[in-house]
């Protein structure tokens, strides 16, 4: 579904990502794991074309999207749930969800999806008319995911959904991710620092170490991998 070849990113001449390759297989949950500053967000932002980067190719559904404008990504089926949520704080929960469907033209479809999504996120349903800025951290994360889903994505990219979320909610967010993947058939690219949780919920994982892919394999394999355990799980 998404295939990135030889991606490098530099800020003011300082390279932070060094020619990495990775893939998000159709129908799977793929995770990019890495510590603070490993370059995860930079990678996501360059896929979305929000920042400049260099690569041989970035293929999405067989098409090169290196030149696709960020505001056209949702139109081709890529939704991002960005780091730090990036909600519209002074808009209500409902308005935020509506904005998630901004690029869509199928009014009837949007209306049904809104009902479905509110059913999937009862916490949000109870707070429909509350301003997004006044939600709790966990609720905000759910809203950010729900907003991304309103775009009816084929590929959902989640950048650290566990950030600033209480431990119980982290499990809820991960279960939701798995549910979105399995029940809604959405391919997921997940970015996480929280390796322990992320590996349990993903099909395939890449471990990023200062801008390079250090290890890759299935979630299960990496959970048992000594090196991963030492570095990321602190065992």
């Amino acid at each position: 579904m998404l295939s990135v070849k030889n991606l490098s990113i530099a800020y003011n001449g300082v390279k932070v990502v060094h020619g990495i390759d990775f893939k998000a297989e159709k129908g799977k949950v793929t995770v990019l794991i890495g510590a603070n500053g490993a370059g995860k967000t930079s990678i996501i932002r360059s896929i979305m074309n929000l920042i400049k980067s260099e690569s041989d190719e970035i293929l999405y559904d067989g098409e090169d999207i290196k030149k696709t404008k960020p505001n056209n990504m949702s139109r081709i089926g890529i939704s991002l749930c960005p780091e730090g949520r990036q909600l519209f704080p002074d808009m209500t929960v409902l308005e935020n969800l509506e904005m998630g469907a901004y690029a869509r033209k199928d009014k009837a479809g949007i209306a049904t999806d809104l009902v479905d999504i509110l059913d999937k996120f009862p916490r949000l349903k109870d707070r429909k008319t509350q301003c997004a800025g006044t939600l709790s951290g966990g609720e905000q994360e759910l809203l950010a995911i729900a907003r991304a889903l309103m775009g009816k994505p084929k590929l959902l990219i989640l950048d650290e959904p566990s950030w600033g979320v209480a431990p119980i909610m982290v499990e809820e967010v991960m279960k939701m991710t798995r549910h979105i993947n399995e029940e809604m058939g959405v391919t997921v690219l997940l970015v996480e620092q929280n390796a322990n949780v992320a590996l349990r919920y993903s099909d395939y994982a890449y471990v990023l170490d200062v801008g390079e892919i250090a290890i890759q394999g299935t979630g299960e394999a990496l959970l048992g991998d000594r090196k991963v355990q030492e570095i990321y799980l602190g065992i």
Partner: peptide, 22 residues
Amino acid sequence: KLGKAVRATSQNREASLIVGIN
């Protein structure tokens, strides 16, 4: 819809791009 896009952009420009607002 356009008015909401204006409000969204003033609240978070990058999120507006992500949801597809020009």
